[in-house]
Amino acid sequence: MNTQSASPAERPAIEPGAGRILVWDAPVRVFHWLIALCFAGAYLSAEHEAWRLVHVTLGYTMAGLVTFRLLWGVVGTRHARFSAFVRGPRAVMAYLRGMLGGHAEHHTGHNPAGAVAIVALLGLALAVTASGWATYEDIGGKWLEEVHEAAANIMLGVVGIHIAGVLLGSWLHRENLIAAMITGRKTGRPGDGVRSAWRSVGILMLAAVLGFWWTQWKTAPMGVAHGPAAVSGKAVTQERDDD
């Protein structure tokens, strides 16, 4: 049977001889779920003054996580490195054509289309956090606040496209890509896996984030931690100085 024209249900999802291998190390997985949690929490708390501390803390956490991911994308394990999955427009278009035709090429790590979404999300996360910090510090005025909101909304749209792509890829390849980002394991050739999960780094990441959250809460001014926040951090500080 010609596997290029067969439907996803008829053709082999992966080449013969493949098995379950470790693809996503612990830092990649911890980053993925923490950034998803932070963005969702920050987006939902954006319009509520009583949740200003949560919103700001999650925004700072996103900035730290993206900084780490950029570094890990250079020095991390095989499939975490940008050089392993970022491809040019031709490769992206070829993958999309295959996906639309029902016979997209299987990739052990991120596929070319998924790589575009990842790079876009990292860039948008930086734009959101930078503009959010400037807005919080009363730098730039109203236009920067609008940039912050627009970047967050665009990021939400890219997240939706990314989720749709993951679901479609899971169906085409008969492989649960969401579960793979939890366990770290996918179907592939033994030689394509990574040797270590780097669990110690993942644990340190989680501990650092939780420690930062605890510090933010414990050191926050009373008005921020237990009630509606002032418009900016400078305003809160000024109110306490006036007392």
Score class of each variant (00 low, 15 high):
Trp217Glu: 13
Arg90His: 09
Thr187Asn: 07
His110Thr: 05
Trp217Asn: 06
Ala179Lys: 05
Leu70Asp: 05
Leu96Lys: 11
Gly109His: 07
Phe212Asn: 10
Ala164Asp: 00
Gly102Pro: 05
Val224Ile: 15
Lys234Pro: 02
Phe82Ala: 09
Pro12Met: 14
Ala36Cys: 10
Tyr60Pro: 01
Trp171Thr: 00
Gly88Ile: 04
Leu204Pro: 00
Ala63Met: 13
Pro89Tyr: 11
Asp243Pro: 01
Thr215His: 03
Ala18Leu: 13
Gly114Val: 08
His148Ala: 06
Ala9Ser: 15
Ile139Leu: 14
Arg199Thr: 07
Ala151Arg: 01
Val54Ile: 15
Gly223Glu: 13
Gly64Gln: 10
Val75Gly: 14
Arg240Met: 12
Leu37Lys: 00
Thr237Gly: 05
Gly169Pro: 02
Thr57Val: 13
Ala42Trp: 07
Val116Leu: 13
Gly102Ser: 14
Ser83Cys: 06
Gly109Lys: 01
Met222Trp: 05
Leu172Ala: 01
Gly59Ala: 03
Val166Phe: 05
Cys38Tyr: 08
Glu239Ser: 12
Gly88Arg: 08
Gln4Tyr: 10
Leu204Glu: 09
Val159Met: 15
Tyr43Asn: 07
Ala104Thr: 01
Val119Ile: 10
Arg78Phe: 04
Cys38Val: 10
Ser7His: 14
Val119Gln: 04
Leu70Glu: 12
Arg174Leu: 04
Ala207Lys: 01
Met205Pro: 00
Leu58Ser: 00
His107Gln: 12
Ile163Met: 06
Trp33Gln: 10
Ala18Pro: 00
Ile139Pro: 12
Arg195Ile: 03
Ala152Arg: 02
Phe82Thr: 08
Thr135Ala: 12
Val147Gly: 08
Arg78His: 14
His107Pro: 00
Phe85Ile: 02
Ala127Arg: 00
Glu49Met: 05
Trp213Tyr: 05
Val119Trp: 00
Thr61Ile: 06
Gly19Asp: 14
Arg11Gln: 12
Thr219Met: 14
Ala134Tyr: 02
Val166Ala: 07
Arg185Asp: 11
Gly109Pro: 00
Gly160Met: 09
Arg69Met: 14
Trp198Ile: 06
Val74Phe: 11
Ile178Gln: 03
Asn176Ala: 08
Leu206Lys: 07
Ala46Phe: 08
Gly140His: 03
Met99Gln: 14
Glu137Ala: 07
Lys234Arg: 15
Gln4Lys: 13
Ala6Ser: 12
Ala164Ile: 00
Arg174Cys: 09
Val158Lys: 09
Ala197Pro: 00
Val209Phe: 04
Thr215Glu: 06
Thr129Gly: 10
Asp242Ile: 06
Ser5Met: 14
Trp213Ser: 11
Gly169Lys: 06
Leu70Cys: 10
Ala115Asn: 08
Arg174Phe: 13
Gly101Asn: 14
Ala26His: 08
His173Ile: 02
Glu15Asp: 15
Met205Glu: 11
Val56Ala: 03
Ser196Ile: 03
Val30Tyr: 11
Ala180Glu: 05
Ala152Cys: 02
Leu53Lys: 08
Ala115Asp: 04
Ala115His: 02
Thr237Cys: 07
Trp213Met: 13
Val74Lys: 11
Thr215Ser: 13
